[in-house]
């Protein structure tokens, strides 16, 4: 927030002041920082799997190889893969859920029932899938 250049009006965007709405304030900041992190994380993930590996070459063997087999000890590389996916999973799910919440609020926010039902489904689905993904990343891939 620098001084304004002479003769120009500069609008400033700031998170909501602390005392007013802590949740919205935190989410506002979270969306920006997680977005910056996800740009790096998600684009490298997408680029690696779709361009370097190639969609047609992705196999279950690759998953087992990268994640390490369930019930067996893992090496540093496999730990790094899991940490990388864990970071994307957590950040992307929270970022996505909050994004959907804002959109739903804008378009169906005046209809409390529709809003609650819609968000209930989205959050339930996202949370279940996130728990499944987290458990899979903790335990590893089951070899066929």
């Amino acid at each position: 927030m620098t001084t304004q250049p002479l003769g120009r009006t500069i609008r400033t965007v700031k998170p909501i002041p602390q005392a007013r709405n802590n949740f919205e304030r935190t989410m506002w900041l979270f969306m920006r920082y997680s977005g910056l992190a996800l740009t790096l994380l998600a684009l490298t993930h997408f680029g690696y799997q779709h361009i370097i590996v190639g969609t047609q070459n992705i196999t279950t063997a690759q998953t087992v190889n990268n994640w390490g087999e369930a019930g067996k000890s893992i090496n540093l590389g496999q730990f790094a893969w899991r940490a990388y996916y864990m970071a994307i999973l957590g950040l992307a799910m929270l970022h996505g859920m909050n994004g959907v919440r804002q959109i739903a609020w804008d378009y169906i926010g005046n209809n409390k029932t529709a809003y609650t039902v819609f968000m209930g489904i989205v959050v339930l689905l996202s949370v279940i899938v996130t728990i499944l993904g987290t458990l899979a990343l903790i335990f590893g891939a089951t070899a066929k």
Partner: peptide, 29 residues
């Protein structure tokens, strides 16, 4: 954003099946 979120849920479900149900994981891939 909505498009990505839709695929994200599908994708995370598919990948989590690598632990819970490898056969379904293969079907997803």
């Amino acid at each position: 954003g909505l498009g990505i979120m839709f695929f994200l849920i599908l994708h995370v479900f598919g990948m989590s099946m690598s632990f819970f149900n490898p056969a379904l994981h293969e079907i997803m891939l």
